[in-house]
Every structure is written in structure tokens, then in C-alpha cells.
Nucleic acid binder design. Structure first.
Lengths: 249, 249
DNA sequence: ACCAGTTATCTATACAAATAGACAACTATG
DNA sequence: CATAGTTGTCTATTTGTATAGATAACTGGT
């Protein structure tokens, strides 16, 4: 898009440190610089001038990005992009995690972190079309692209119908396969609601992003081919690593 | 009093001030408290204990929310929600701003803020299927629900084909109507890409959110019924005021 | 009238963030 | 080799953030 480089654009008494705002902005632009032959960022002095801050502030931002493994600085030479950040994640009627990533040469898998049996509150029960207080399975999972965490999700399913799902999920690393093993050969997405917010410390830790990193949160309901609700999920995407595309189909 | 190991999900050296993190978390929970009879928040001392911070830090967070007009504190009585729930914003093949809001009793309109003629860079030209360097119309708009800014968007259109669009848009307050007046009776959305990031100072000002507020950013392409690209847009949603729903259709 | 609960305001201290300037260490190039 | 350009490190100062404690002002109920 057109480069309307308002050299400022930073909030000064916003409760968000300048170095973090600058790190976020630079992260946005990594794709541009990584397209250069040498994947080199502008010198610290140039960046300081562009954002109208002290060079030390830029250095704090670059240090944060280096900590995330996105850039690497070399004395005397410059600072270079080492990893392009965002992965495209399509959401549509037939969204599946693994196929979403295979389209970009990333192998996707799901790690089962925790499981518990809880009583459905009004929201969960309503989504799954069960009586309030029904026993439901609550699963925490981490979605990986290669070795990079992409999603941290909590899923709720009818405990009676899907008692065996956790072991299948742990074995196969795929929700689609685990559901198939529980008698749901196919499913589709009925609804998705998206919002953006900051990560809590736990979410930041699970996703291996900096504290205060941004999330996109999707609450979605999958139904089987009979239209029966199967799985209600809250999926937290590390916003710095993903962009979500809406499938036209 | 401070056992800093368990602090309810707050990051301490994250470059995001605690008061801002707490303000964000409280903002998330306003819907819960606004559902109470008196729409009253817990006392400052309770909130301080819950987040494991000093009461003054909670006060800084509440002051920020009061500045946004979300809560009001009354000496001796407490702090109260002035209700402002999130607006659901559906995105799908036939997304239109006004119809999106009419479904929830809000009247939507578009305000034309600025217009300019610029040369298309590679991204814009590619999206609109024009030669690089073609003259394109660049429009900044604000989308309102009632009097509340919901979106701040930049649109690009072929300057040759849509020279008259700005005046129609300014007059009607509707992109659909303005396009119709320019010979595009109907259109549909070909692609949408979503990401989340922090607002720049300008974006925060246009959307009347606090500096450092969160955005959801949608880049979308609308095509006419012949499949010809008509309008490429970057729409910035105030994350605190909207949730985006993906249309199943 | 009194009291318990709540928000408002004040002082003080400690640490983080941002600024400023200077210089060292290293790289590439002529 | 000499020099320009770049990142790394150091000192110092100012402003923002967070903690701590004390006290005042106000509300609602007993």
C-alpha cells in the first residue's frame, strides 16, 4: 500500500512503551525488507530518524525482535531479517488446521496440553445444544507450524459422546483424525466470531510471544454432517505470526 | 502483600504499562458488570487484589477507561459502567457496512474524510488489475454506528472509472449507493485478509480510541458482477467496539 | 450520630523508559 | 592503509510507571 510515512504515528503517553510500539511497527514491515537481496534493515540511525526517537529506543525495539528470533544484528554490518513473520491462515466453512498450513509448506500438528471434565456453563451448553451443567470435555491445545506455536486453543465437547477423543488426539496430533475415530467422519464450521485483544501472561507463554503481545481470538462452532454441534472452540492466534484470510467459498 | 509469582496474567517488563493491561482486561469484562442491576464494578481495593497490583495502578487504569467514556467513578459510591457493548460486524461475500449495522438497530453511515489522486504502487495496481503508476483515487472514510466511530478505512479505486464517486459518497454516505451512481449496480467481495495490530496515533484519533488501542485490520477487494476489480480497501476496526463474524453463506 | 465502605488526594521512594552524547569495535571499500 | 558507515557499550539526566502509606471526602445504612 502507499507509503504514507508519517514519521511519527506513535503514542507518547499511551501506557505502551515506545520501544514496543516501534518493535510492532518494524515487525509489520519485515516482509518488505526480507524481500531485499540481503534482507537488510535500515541502519539504526535511519530508523531513529524515521520514528523520531533516540537511537537507543530503536535499539531496544530491535533487541526485542532479536529475542523473538525475527532479526539478527551484526556489528559493523547491519541488522538482518532472519524469519518472515506472518503465516496465512484461511478460515471458511471447511477450516482445518493442518490443511491450512500444508498450503504453505509448513507441517501443522496439534499438541494436547491439558484435559479436564467440567460442567457446561450457559454459553458452552448453548453452543453445544446440551443442558446447562452437562459434563463436557475441556481440552487445551497448542497448534504448531514446524516448531513455531501458532495457536493456543481451548475446546469443549460433549463428554458422553467424545470420551475417547483425548487419547486419539494425543496419538494423531490431528483433531480431524481424532473426531473421525470417535465416529465423526466429517464436519464443517457453522460460525466464527473474531476479536482482537492483548495476551495474558499464560497465553503469551503458551504461544512463546512477548508479554503484551497481540492475539486474534476466534470462537467457532463445528457441526457434524447431520448439523449436530460437535465442538466449540476458542482459538487464540499469535497476531504477529498469522494473518487470517476469509475463504470466499 | 505482593507475591509476584501469580498476578492473574499480567506481564511486568513487557513494554506495556500495567495500568494499560489492566484497563484492557477490565474493558473485556465490562459486559459482565454492566449486566448487574447497578452496573457497578468491584471496589478499587478488590480489583487491586485481583490483579495483585497497588490500588493506585488500578486507579490509573480506571482513569483511562473513564477518559474513554466507558466507566464513571463516584466518590463514596463506586465505579459504574456506562454501557457500550461490542457491535457484531459480519464479513462475507456480500459485506456492506450499512446493512451490517442495521441488523442491530444501529444506523450506519460513511463519512468521507479526505480524497486524493495518487499513482498506484505495485500492491494497489496488482489488486485492481491496473498498470503500475496508473492514477487511482484514494479515499479515507470513517464508518459510524450512531455517533460512535467503528471503522477508519482507506479505499483505492480506478480514477478514470470512478472520478465522480467522492461527491456521490459525500452526499449519500453509502459506498453501495455511490458505486451504483457510477455504474456499478452490484458488487461482491472477492477476498479478505485480517490482521491485528496496535493503532497509530492518527488511527487512534480518527477512531476516538485511546492511544495504543487495538485494531483489527481487514484488507479486502470488491469486484463487480463481471468479476472486474472495483475497490481495494484497508479497513481498520476499533477492536474494543466490534467483533467480526464470518458469514457461513 | 455514628460507622463501615468507597473514592480522592497527598507525600515519598524505587525502578523502567527515553533522551543525549561520546567513544569503541567491527566491516566494507577505495 | 585510511575512511566512512555500522553496531556495541558506557555515563548521565529527565520523565513515566508502580509501590507504599496516610488522610480527607463522601455515601449508605444502623
Amino acid at each position: 500500500m502507499t507509503d504514507r510515512t508519517e514519521n511519527d504515528g506513535l503514542g507518547r503517553r499511551s501506557g505502551v512503551a515506545l520501544w514496543r510500539q516501534i518493535a510492532d511497527r518494524i515487525r509489520q514491515d519485515l516482509a518488505i525488507w526480507s524481500a531485499q537481496d540481503d534482507a537488510r534493515l535500515p541502519p539504526e540511525t535511519d530508523l531513529a530518524a524515521r520514528f523520531d526517537v533516540n537511537r537507543h529506543t530503536v535499539r531496544a525495539a530491535l533487541a526485542a525482535l532479536a529475542q523473538e528470533g525475527l532479526v539478527r544484528s551484526e556489528r559493523g554490518k547491519g541488522t538482518f531479517v532472519v524469519r518472515r513473520p506472518r503465516i496465512a491462515y484461511p478460515i471458511g466453512r471447511r477450516t482445518r488446521f493442518s490443511t491450512a498450513l500444508e498450503a504453505q509448506n509448513s507441517s501443522g500438528r496439534i499438541l494436547l496440553l491439558r484435559q479436564a471434565r467440567v460442567q457446561a456453563d450457559a454459553v458452552i451448553a448453548g453452543a453445544l445444544d446440551l443442558p446447562v451443567g452437562s459434563e463436557v470435555l475441556m481440552l487445551d491445545t497448542r497448534g504448531l507450524a514446524g516448531d513455531t506455536p501458532i495457536t493456543f486453543a481451548t475446546h469443549w465437547l460433549d463428554a458422553a459422546r467424545f470420551a475417547d477423543l483425548p487419547e486419539h488426539l494425543a496419538r494423531t496430533g490431528s483433531i480431524t483424525a481424532a473426531l473421525a475415530a470417535c465416529g465423526v467422519p466429517d464436519y464443517e464450521r457453522r460460525s466464527t466470531v473474531l476479536e482482537a485483544r492483548r495476551a495474558t501472561a499464560q497465553e503469551a507463554a503458551e504461544l512463546d510471544i512477548g508479554d503484551g503481545g497481540l492475539l486474534m481470538v476466534a470462537r467457532s462452532l463445528n457441526v457434524d454432517m447431520a448439523g449436530q454441534p460437535v465442538q466449540f472452540s476458542e482459538t487464540r492466534f499469535a497476531a504477529e505470526r498469522v494473518e487470517i484470510t476469509i475463504d470466499p467459498a
